[in-house]
Simulated scan of single mutants.
Amino acid sequence: MDLQMIMEYLKGLKENNNREWYQEHKTEYEAAASEFLKLVETLMIGLGKMEPGILLHEPKKLTYKLVRDTRFSKDKSPYNPAFRVHLSEGGKQPVPVGYYLMITPGASFLGGGLFADIFKEETAMMRDYIATHGDEWEGIVEGGTFKDLFEAKGSSLKNVPAGYDREHPQAAYLKYKSWYVEYPLADGLLADAGRFVDNILEICKVIKPFNDFINRALADSKFMNQP
């Protein structure tokens, strides 16, 4: 598994983000994409020991295309120079939440949690669950190893929304519209594929209780039982 090949291709695409360069380097793209799929397959096998449902999915269907939708963007660059995958028992859909890996020059990261804040029903479910399971939530986000690696993030309202106690111990999190964590991955980490995979799997173990809490909160989500 040559992760350096992935990074070298993406660096070239980032510096030459146009259709001509992309077409001229299609062979390099295919080689890099093949290496990324090997990485995805390896991570799925490792994560499958914790979450067997991940193994039910076809690796390629969990990845994202490089082509950007530029219709509503001022940035008309045709490609996103990043290889991305969402590893979850639900596949690529946002719920159940899983592990999101993005490899891109200078900004790679591993994330977990609920990134999308456009689903009002799921946002309400999460707030309700935090409100009634505040101690459990605090135990996760303030836990030693978790807190050493992460700070729970998310887009947020200015005030606690109506219907929730403004004095709740977790009032700050009740303002959130999304709840997620990110772990930055330096480019140099990809030099040793074996160590990179081991590192990712260890970080996922730390993220898992956070994800599990969110998935319990969203147990009644319409996304949960979708094929």
Rank of each mutant, 00 (worst) to 15 (best):
D2E: 14
S73G: 09
D117E: 12
M5Y: 01
G113V: 12
D192V: 09
A131Y: 05
G144P: 05
K158H: 14
M102L: 14
A186I: 03
H168R: 04
R68H: 08
I130K: 04
Q170C: 15
T123V: 15
A219R: 12
S155A: 15
P105M: 04
F72V: 10
S108L: 01
R166V: 14
P161H: 11
H133V: 01
D187V: 08
K158I: 05
T63N: 05
A116D: 15
V97R: 01
P169D: 05
Y176W: 06
F115N: 06
F210I: 11
L185S: 09
L185Y: 08
L37S: 03
G90N: 09
L157E: 15
R19L: 04
L110C: 02
G139A: 10
I103S: 00
P94E: 02
E15F: 02
S34C: 00
E30K: 03
V160G: 11
P81E: 04
K49C: 01
S155K: 13
K26C: 00
S155Q: 13
L149I: 04
E24A: 15
I207W: 02
F109M: 10
Y180F: 15
W21F: 12
E28S: 14
K60E: 15
A107E: 09
V206T: 15
C204I: 05
N215W: 10
L3Q: 00
G163Y: 09
M5V: 11
H25K: 13
E8Y: 03
